[in-house]
Design a protein around this nucleic acid. Structure first.
Lengths: 223, 223
DNA sequence: ACAACATTCTATTATTCAATAGAATAATAA
DNA sequence: TTATTATTCTATTGAATAATAGAATGTTGT
């Protein structure tokens, strides 16, 4: 099209941005930020048709945002790079700061956000060194097994009511899940507080933790 | 459209990405990363028509990426936030790592890149503390005046040949300009080396320096 | 008030994109 | 081999986007 190198670079960068410019694709990327998944699994987890998911994934692949691996009948997709999580986080930050729309949605549906006094990753790292916190991962066991914050306890929100006994008393609980807008940790903190625990949320989730290069642990649930 | 809050958020984030999904708009953002500019100035600097520039700017504004200020007959646009520079840098990093196209363009037109041994921001900060480097800003004086790395000398590539005497001998020169793909600093380093100076490039430019929160200085050229 | 200028708005057209359905591949199971 | 399942590819439709030209708005200078 053009042969001005600067322009060609801008156009190439634009193709990456274009791939991010669709809500469904961002949703797929969020799902992939948890763990690699097959097209079938992604179809189940999103509300799209099979063929449509496949096409979106291929756009993401052309843009270099995801990679694919074939295993038997299944094709497993995963993020090409942890930098993708950072890119999306950067997108989110700009949207949060500069678009009133985000405020309205967030304050409408995630109202307790501030009242639950979210903790930053840095603060959590500091607390972990002191060793006086219980870290609670409220995601499903499969996602936990694919990777989690070292030493975290895995109890889903559903089980939480019956497993309060597994949580060490007397020290603060920090709950996290899939990301900044994942409601699971909000619910967990609300429940824990009602039952007398001192509990707070991590202000984002596992993918951001991993992308930041902080240590992770993998394997089956630790209980 | 939908009232699933998660989906509404993704759609909102997607509108920001969509605004970035066009080479011309990325070019406008790069120009704005230097300094605020009027629609007229941007029309001159890009190869777009006046009306088209205006429309692109309005898309950028709707996406919360730029702000506008009216002064007399002119409307001046500027980046809404330094985070925008970081977002674009993140986009660039992913494109560089994962798309062969970028490699081809970069190695075709910016071949000397590696041979000129670019220096990172962090390394430059360390060198500045030792005080044994000359920092050379090769951008036009207007851009220099709008903000530059503290202590930098402003000499454009055009003047450089006749003003070598202004450069302290015996210490390394670090040149920078508008960003990682700005050719000015490549040319400056090539010229300086030919004339016997020890010279290297900063691996990105002023906008990235500023966005990283490093100290900046403003005002007329320091010579 | 009028003319000149910078900018935005509107309408039009060509291009690109999203979603759907159905055909084509490719791997496994019977 | 045939059937089954997971996935990709192709074609089609309707929707969104980009570029252009020209009208409308608003500000400054006379």
């Amino acid at each position: 099209m053009t042969d001005d190198p600067k322009r060609r670079l801008f156009n190439t960068f634009a193709t990456v941005a274009k791939a991010l410019g669709n809500g469904h694709r961002l949703e797929l990327l969020e799902l992939l930020a948890q763990d690699e998944r097959s097209v079938e699994a992604l179809t189940r987890l999103s509300r799209l048709t099979f063929g449509n998911v496949s096409q979106h994934l291929q756009q993401l692949r052309r843009a270099g945002l995801v990679d694919a691996r074939k295993d038997g009948k299944h094709v497993f997709y995963r993020l090409a790079d942890d930098e993708v999580v950072k890119l999306i986080a950067s997108l989110r930050r700009i949207a949060e700061r500069n678009l009133a729309e985000v405020d309205r949605v967030v304050s409408g549906y995630f109202r307790e956000r501030d009242s639950l006094e979210a903790l930053s990753r840095e603060e959590l790292v500091a607390r972990m060194q002191d060793g006086l916190v219980t870290i609670l991962d409220v995601r499903p066991p499969e996602e936990f097994a694919a990777g989690h914050v070292p030493g975290a306890l895995n109890i889903t929100v559903k089980e939480l009511g019956e497993r309060l006994g597994d949580i060490p008393a007397g020290q603060e609980v920090i709950a996290y899940c899939r990301g900044p807008y994942c409601v699971l940790s909000f619910e967990a903190v609300a429940l824990l507080r009602k039952r007398g625990f001192e509990a707070r949320r991590l202000d984002d989730g596992y993918p951001e933790w991993k992308a930041a290069g902080l240590p992770v642990e993998a394997g089956p649930a630790s209980d």
